[in-house]
Design a protein around this nucleic acid. Structure first.
Lengths: 177, 177
DNA sequence: GCCGTATGTTGACGACGCTAACATAGGAAG
DNA sequence: CTTCCTATGTTAGCGTCGTCAACATACGGC
């Protein structure tokens, strides 16, 4: 670990690239993430990312994977805290997660997922997320219905599609019960 | 209307551009729509579209507007046909619309909508769509809940996020009731 | 029949994703 | 310690994209 100036080798460029991409995702959404800007922020040449990711989609998939980890943790924490019935707590946490990090949410549950044969680990993470969602929900169909509602409300809120939605937090409390 | 070769003036280039963009949307989704390819398909120079749309986003907004018109028609037809309760018929039609034209659906209810201050007509169309959805739904909160569910299921199905979803049509019949 | 203006074209710029060829460094083998 | 293999990073360049400015053409009102 040399300390003189910038070493030729970064040390953990992969993580640094993901951090930079994550920040861009927060700032300007999916479209704001460019490999060149990510590299710029990591202080590295425009094509350095190709030593760690096959292509841009692979970087985004890794980003989504990170998202699913955070998502799982948030869900776990919500039920552990034990405010109300588990599936209600999960619904609230789901919506809060989406509203807090829209870019990350859209990336995780977005067209990338449909292309997940190319990213098996991403597929596995999404499957695991659904399995967790299903617990204590009263059967698969009921679970799908609540998941659908919460997921749909998340998208509609993010896209500001709901007229006179007012404060999102209040709307959530009113609708989730 | 000169008949010798391609006339310098197209006649209705705006509509032709929208048609081409619509086709691209179906073929490869949002990301497949480029102004240059749209122009290519309309048989016109790469920048001709700028005589009809301020920028790419304006073209996409016009495309989404077209989508909302088709959407309104589909909803109207669904309740007019009168199979079951109106809001059930609408839910089915909503999901069928999304599954039939994923690109169009994602464009209509997507990040573009959140930027709709720049596209007032698009905003108006989306508001009107929600108003129609709200009819006979038993209050605004109930309407939001069903809209949320149907919208969420649409996205989850499009993104293939539901494990072992099998035939989408069957799933719809099972969940919507 | 003339001319203003709407419509379409050409050429160019910077940013992007990606590839190939090259440079450097860090660790394993001797 | 030296040598060399390989992982990691850089440079140069290709084709595509969105967009703008300057120019060309033709439609329609006077």
């Amino acid at each position: 670990m040399s300390t003189s100036g910038r070493p030729y080798h970064h040390g953990d460029l992969r993580a640094a690239l993901l951090d930079a991409a994550d920040a861009l995702l927060d700032e300007g959404g999916d479209g704001a993430v460019s490999l060149r800007e990510v590299a710029r922020r990591a202080g590295v040449s425009p094509t350095a990312a190709y030593r760690h990711f096959a292509d841009k989609e692979a970087l985004l998939a890794a980003l989504a994977l990170r998202g699913f980890e955070a998502f799982g943790a948030a869900m776990g924490a919500a039920v552990a805290q034990g405010a109300g019935a588990p599936h209600v707590a999960r619904g609230r946490a789901y919506l809060r997660f989406a509203l807090a990090r829209p870019g990350r949410f859209r990336l995780m549950f977005g067209p990338l997922l449909a292309r997940s044969p190319a990213h098996p680990d991403l597929l596995a993470a999404s499957r695991q997320a659904f399995t967790a969602l299903q617990a204590n929900a009263g059967g698969r169909d009921a679970a799908l219905r609540s998941w659908g509602m919460v997921h749909g409300l998340a998208h509609l809120l993010l896209d500001q599609a709901i007229p006179e939605a007012g404060e999102a937090e209040a709307l959530i409390e009113r609708l989730i019960c």
